[in-house]
């Protein structure tokens, strides 16, 4: 950028002599760059103190989402995913934020409510069978559900988000 500006400064008088060429003062490109100005005379001190830099690092955000640490109790009710995932017919992976991937999908101007369970691995049909059996106790009407084996999600008609989360937490998933 600085080079281009210098080029502009050199070429400008030549161009102005030849043809009618004007500086566009309204354009930001017309103003000089900071590096082209005279040397800064403001006195300043450069500090490389690691103790001070610690405070800078404290203010900066983490670049990755931290892994949850094992604690005795979790007062908020959130539970980490169990490590015993072997010998299970199905498995539901947590999201990047370590939450259960169960969502409420509201559409048709708030009329249609679907429960969406994502990230299902393994025997999705068995999971659907067990889940519907569990949810059926709370529902008067037969539960309608749709299994998408390829994408690994289940769509259930109605709002069963909390019940599904409870079911999964009970299964330690």
């Amino acid at each position: 950028m600085a080079l281009r500006h210098k080029l502009f400064q050199i070429l400008h008088p030549i161009l102005t002599n030849r043809c009618t060429y004007s500086i566009r003062h309204f354009c930001y490109k017309a103003s000089p760059f900071v590096e082209d100005l005279d040397k800064l005379n403001t006195k300043y001190e450069v500090s490389k103190d690691p103790e001070e830099w610690k405070y800078v690092e404290r203010a900066l955000p983490l670049t990755i989402i931290p892994e949850p640490v094992a604690k005795e109790t979790y007062p908020s009710g959130w539970k980490p995913q169990t490590n015993e995932v072997k010998n299970r017919p199905y498995f539901i992976e947590r999201t990047k934020n370590h939450m259960i991937p169960v969502y409420l999908d509201i559409s048709q101007r708030g009329v249609r409510r679907h429960t969406l369970i994502k990230r299902i691995q393994g025997d999705i049909n068995l999971f659907e069978k067990e889940l519907v059996k569990f949810l059926q106790k709370e529902s008067f009407q037969p539960i309608r559900s749709q299994v998408n084996e390829f994408a690994g999600y289940i769509r259930i008609n109605g709002d069963f988000v909390n019940a599904t989360k409870y079911f999964l937490e009970k299964k330690n998933l």
């Binding site: 403001t42 006195k43 300043y44 500090s47 103190d49 001070e52 830099w53 405070y55 800078v56 404290r58």
Partner: peptide
């Protein structure tokens, strides 16, 4: 910010703090 004085300029590239 905790520990950082107003007026300081933080240079993340060179990991230095410029103080007036």
């Amino acid at each position: 910010f905790y520990g950082l004085h107003p007026g300081w300029v933080v240079n993340l590239k060179d990991k230095v703090i410029l103080k007036p």
